[in-house]
Amino acid sequence: MKKIALTLATMALTLSSIPAMAAETGGGCGVGKVLLEGQKGVGANVGASILNQVLLPQSSSMTSGIMGCDTTQVVKNGHDRETFATANRDELSVEMAQGQGNHLASLADIMGISEQHRADFYSLTQKKYESLNGSDSAMMLGALDSAMSSHPALSVYVR
């Protein structure tokens, strides 16, 4: 029964050109590759534009050059804050303005800020919103470091 159904459905699909099922498009190994390159120092900005691209279905070029790439290498022991900040700049900006949020908590986690200092961190990023949200994410982190270094509790977390 189901086999006949499948054949007929195939016809229908072809006729109506509606792809039916969960085909997730989007970045494949290509992403991992570029993510890696970004982390190896080609520059966080490259990573950023690619990270953004990943969000968009049907962006081609992701799939080219897939052979020989190994997505398991995307996994790193700990995220570095540059990549994270670049990839989540918009969300971080919003949550800084709102004084809380999961992205901000994750950034705090990456920076090793302990639970007891999180509230300080959130209110600092809210207070310094304007200076933190300049032209790019590298600036954001630079400004964050300088804002934190003059904070009594948070200065210890500046690298």
Partner: peptide
């Protein structure tokens, strides 16, 4: 071609 991709969850959440 179907492949496994590995990505941080924040990217999937955004998507």
């Amino acid at each position: 071609t179907g492949r496994y991709t590995i990505l941080p969850y924040y990217m999937k959440l955004r998507e």
